[in-house]
Structures are given as structure tokens and as C-alpha cells.
Design a protein around this nucleic acid. Structure first.
Length: 510
RNA sequence: GGCCCCUUCGUCUAUCGGCUAGGACGCCAGGUUUUCAUCCUGGAAAGAGGAGUUCGAUUCUCCUAGGGGCUGCCA
């Protein structure tokens, strides 16, 4: 193939929020475009007016932006090939349907929805294979192939509703060379005369996507595997429209599967199994239903994108952590897997943990500060940076640092019951009391000074850390576990630490 | 049912005819740690089944089985 400008498109239908499978398709399109210095286009496929969902288009755009894979061109982003909503391109399609009728590759069909339902029903009851509108059945249906021309003309002049169907040839192998699957071949005998143009004046997906891809000079169609069965139909449309030379290359991506059981990942799986399936939280304005999102659950977009990239693709090396620009560099359509990939939530959490750790305390500080503020807790950024330094090794999310280290923001409200029961006794109490006195006299309240004083005390008392540490931790933090107590006390400061020791001695059981 | 696609540890996957089948997540054990987490070390864990091609098949071909997708005037 000659060097052709790479132009790819992501073409969702605005029938609801974009789920992670769709995001992955968009991501692969984005990566492919960027790697080739090409253009990533967003086209909205809203030819089915009955399935329009308010807010969906905006959601899709916001989701792509959050992921950092915003289109270069398309709905909401401008460009020279617009409009990018198919509903606004309506006048464009009809002529191509007509062209196909004229060239004998399509025909008018007057069968009503009820007619079709009846004949399908009949076939079903007879126990035969699914009824199809095809070369064997079209002769007995109401269409411009089975009816006299005069009658057809009359019906059209009359304004009777009709659709335009493709007329598939008999027994013809249609082949396409898929970039991820290699050669795929289907015989036209196994395909049906798909509707290209609906009675409401809109094209179906099949016609619209070919017409638009052609006019938008799309070079590669990267989409989900659910389109594979209709890809041969699309090849035929390019051929019949005379655009075969400009036909894009196809790449059909494996599906994202449910973590449990069978089938592709669906929007209900997430909240059923305890993970988001959507990048952003979605509020259904019709029924008030809410679906959780990765963003709201505290995931970093980089982690989410990294995880998605690896569901169905891998670089062939052992590197797993990839920044977006590294993905752009490494991504190869040829290395996309053929089999469906099951989503693994633990792995997603792990990715987030890796990204959390890779961030500096200073980068984490504003995020932690914001999280604290939401809980009504106050702390400045430098302080939050120190908290991050202490807590990030034991956190998956920013919010974990807050929940695990809440005592760094406010006095403990309650004390861990198990630690209280097991570690808090007269002896522990005595040690805490002694330590309070020692710490009161400390000039330098640094972690190392505290540690030195603490260890000296242990030596002098001839006791092990285990006898003193847990009670001390409980008194200061209310918890039985956590980071170094010396670091914690140093961070809290002398006044606060002593204050807490005093409170604990006064309030904890004797 | 028909058609198309797919099939390596529980999961994501590496392997492009020579394998003691590698890595990651998760899991288990040990070590480090006052504790928890981290970290380190180790472990269990896979080529759906059957034919064929070949000196040699996880790798190529076929069959079977299983899984998935499609089968709408939805995309």
C-alpha cells in the first residue's frame, strides 16, 4: 500500500455513556494515529434517533479528555471534514443509496416491520434456520425486484414508506485482510440483504459509515470484533460505490469480557462485581440511575489507560508500565491479540498503586489536600506532602492515604479495639506515661531524636520494643499498625504528640 | 440453528519448529519491619482433546470440543 495519510476515527453512538471497552477502542485508534503522525477523528453515529440519550455525546468527549486521548478533529473539536454528527450529514447519504439502486446493487423494499416480523416468526415456528432477507427470499417479498416497475413507481410516488436494501450476489467469496486477524472470508450466501437506507430518511450504520469514512478520508478502521461479521458487507459497499481503491484497512479488536462467567463486559457487571465499567461517573437523567466511574473512584487516568492498553495488547517485552507517549511509541496493531480479554480488577488496582508511588510527595500533596478538605479536614500542602511521604507506600489511592492516616489530620476519635484489648495494660500505660515525661524534655523533636530517646528508654528499662511500641502507637494514633511512630510524632509536632499522650492516659481504661 | 472469530498458569500474556514453557496480577511460604504496608527471596499454577506434517511440535494443517460475536428499518 502506498504511503497514505493516516486518519482514523472513533465512531460511537450516543446511546449512553462510553464504557471501558469503547475507551480502549478509542485508545488504540489514538495510539495508532499518533504513532503515524496521523489524525484521530471523533464521529458521532446518531443515525438512530430513537436511541438518542441526552448527555451521552458530552460524556464521550469528557471521557476521552480525561483519559488524555482527545481527538484532533471531530465533534466538539472542529476540522475540515464536518459536520461530524451523522444526523447533520443526513442530506449526504441519500444520493449514494440511489446510486446503488441505479447500478443494480440495491433495491427498494416495501415490507413493513410487521411483514418482516410475521415471516420471521413463521420460520421460527417451523423450526427452520433464522429467516433472512436474501437472494432466496427476496423474490417473495414486496420489493422493486419482485414487483412490476409501474407498481413500484406508483408506491414511491404515493409516498409509501420503503427502505433501500443492498442486493447481494449469489455465492461469492468476500475476503478482507484484517490487520489483527489476517484473511477473513465470507460467502455472500451466508449474508443477507441489509437495509442501507431506512424509511425515516436516515441511512443505517452500514451505509453511513462507508460514506463517511470515504468522505473523511479514513485510512484505517479500528473497531470492536462485533463488527467483524458485517465487514464483508462493508467491503462490498466500497466496491459497489466505486471506492475500493480508497477503502480503509480494517482491524477488528478482541472484546472485553466479564471477569466472571461468560460474555462481553456490560454496564451492569461493574456495580454487580464491585468495580466501575465507566471512565466517568454517569447519571442517567431519565431514571436517576447512577453508574460509578474510575475517575470518581480515585484512579489516575494514566493508570486506567495503561491498564486498558494491556487488555488485548502487549509490547512483547517485560515492561508493563507505560506512559502515554511510550504507548504511542510501542503500540503495534499486529501485536493486538485475537482472543477476548477478561477484565481483572486487581490488576487495575495494582496499576494505580504503581502510578501513585511513582508520583512525588509534592505532586500528591494537592490531591491529598483536596481529599482532606472534602472530609472537612484542614492541612496545607507542605504538610500533605509529608503525609504522602509517610503513607503512599501503603496506599493504592490518594484516598487511602487519608483513611489510613487520618490521625495525621485530626486526633483519633476512637481506639482500635483489638489493640486496646491485647496491648493496653498497666505496664503499657506506665511506659506511655514515662515516655511522655521523656518527650516533654526533648529539645529536638525530630524522628531520629525521638528514636534515640525511645531506644535509650527501652535499654534503661530492659524491655523490648514489643512491650512499649504498640501501646504508644495506640495512644498517639488510635491504631494498631502504621508507619514509623517516630516519623509520625515528628510530623505531628511536640505539642500535639504530648497532647495526645495526655488524652490517652486520661481517657483510655486504667 | 446458521455464519464468522477465538483457545498457553485462576486472570493479562511471552513464545514467530528445538522448552528445564518466561513475565505480571492474585495466592501461599520465608526473610526484613516494634506492627501493618512496602521491599527481598522462594513456591504452587498452563499449552482443550485427537489425528496429521516433521528428526522434532505450544508453535504449521485438519477434525472434535469449548468460548465469544453476529444473525434488527441498533450501532
Amino acid at each position: 500500500m502506498s504511503q497514505r495519510l493516516v486518519r482514523v476515527r472513533f465512531a460511537p453512538s450516543p446511546t449512553g455513556p462510553l464504557h471501558m471497552g469503547g475507551v480502549r477502542t478509542a485508545l488504540y485508534n489514538y495510539l495508532f494515529a499518533k504513532q503515524h503522525g496521523g489524525t484521530f477523528v471523533l464521529r458521532v453515529e446518531d443515525t438512530d434517533q430513537t436511541r438518542f440519550v441526552k448527555g451521552a455525546e458530552e460524556y464521550i468527549i469528557n471521557a476521552l479528555k480525561w483519559c488524555g486521548i482527545a481527538p484532533d478533529e471531530g465533534q466538539g473539536f472542529g476540522g475540515d471534514f464536518g459536520p461530524y454528527r451523522q444526523s447533520e450529514r443526513k442530506p449526504l447519504y441519500r444520493q449514494f443509496a440511489d446510486q446503488l439502486v441505479e447500478s443494480g446493487h440495491a433495491y427498494y423494499a416495501f415490507d413493513t416491520a410487521e411483514d418482516l416480523e410475521r415471516v420471521r416468526d413463521l420460520a421460527k415456528k417451523a423450526g427452520t434456520a433464522n429467516w433472512q432477507y436474501n437472494h432466496v427470499t427476496r423474490g417473495s417479498m414486496k420489493n422493486s425486484l419482485s414487483m412490476p416497475k409501474a407498481e413500484v413507481d406508483k408506491k414511491i410516488a404515493n409516498g409509501d414508506p420503503y427502505v433501500i436494501r443492498i442486493k447481494l450476489p449469489r455465492n461469492e467469496e468476500v475476503k478482507l485482510n484484517d490487520l489483527v486477524r489476517g484473511w477473513v472470508s465470507v460467502n455472500t450466501n451466508n449474508m443477507d440483504d441489509k437495509v442501507l437506507f431506512k424509511s425515516d430518511g436516515m441511512p443505517t450504520y452500514h451505509l453511513a459509515n462507508i460514506v463517511d469514512d470515504y468522505h473523511m478520508k479514513i485510512s484505517h478502521v479500528i473497531r470492536g470484533e462485533e463488527w467483524l461479521p458485517s465487514a464483508p458487507l462493508h467491503v462490498l459497499l466500497y466496491r459497489y460505490l466505486g471506492w475500493e481503491d480508497a477503502m480503509p484497512q480494517f482491524a477488528h479488536l478482541p472484546l472485553l469480557l466479564k471477569p466472571d462467567g461468560n460474555g462481553k463486559l456490560s454496564k451492569r457487571d461493574g456495580d454487580r462485581l464491585g468495580f466501575p465499567v465507566f471512565p466517568l461517573e454517569w447519571h442517567n437523567s431519565e431514571n436517576g440511575e447512577v453508574f460509578s466511574g474510575y475517575r470518581e473512584n480515585g484512579y489516575f487516568p494514566e493508570a486506567f489507560v495503561n491498564m486498558l492498553a494491556f487488555l488485548g495488547w502487549n509490547p512483547g517485552t517485560e515492561q508493563e508500565l507505560f506512559a502515554l507517549d511510550e504507548l504511542i511509541e510501542a503500540f503495534r496493531l499486529e501485536r493486538v491479540n485475537k482472543a477476548g480479554a477478561r477484565y481483572d480488577h486487581d490488576k487495575t488496582r495494582w496499576f494505580n498503586q504503581q502510578y501513585l508511588r511513582a508520583k512525588s510527595n509534592e505532586d500528591l500533596a494537592p490531591l491529598l489536600k483536596a481529599a482532606a478538605q472534602e472530609e472537612g479536614l484542614k492541612a496545607d500542602e507542605p504538610y500533605c506532602a509529608q503525609v504522602a511521604g509517610l503513607m503512599k507506600e501503603r496506599a493504592f489511592f490518594v484516598k487511602d492515604m487519608l483513611s489510613e492516616g487520618r490521625y495525621l489530620f485530626e486526633k483519633p476519635k476512637d481506639f482500635d479495639e483489638k489493640t486496646l484489648r491485647k496491648k493496653w495494660n498497666a505496664e503499657a500505660r506506665g511506659h506511655v506515661s514515662n515516655l511522655k515525661t521523656i518527650f516533654e524534655n526533648l529539645d529536638s523533636f525530630t524522628a531520629s531524636a525521638l528514636e534515640a530517646a525511645f531506644k535509650e528508654y527501652l535499654q534503661q528499662q530492659e524491655v523490648g520494643f514489643g512491650k512499649v511500641g504498640p501501646g504508644f502507637r495506640l495512644a498517639v494514633t488510635g491504631k494498631g499498625m502504621g508507619p514509623s511512630m517516630f516519623e509520625i510524632c515528628a510530623l505531628l509536632g511536640k505539642e500535639e504528640t504530648l497532647n495526645r499522650l495526655e488524652t490517652a492516659l486520661a481517657e483510655l481504661p486504667q
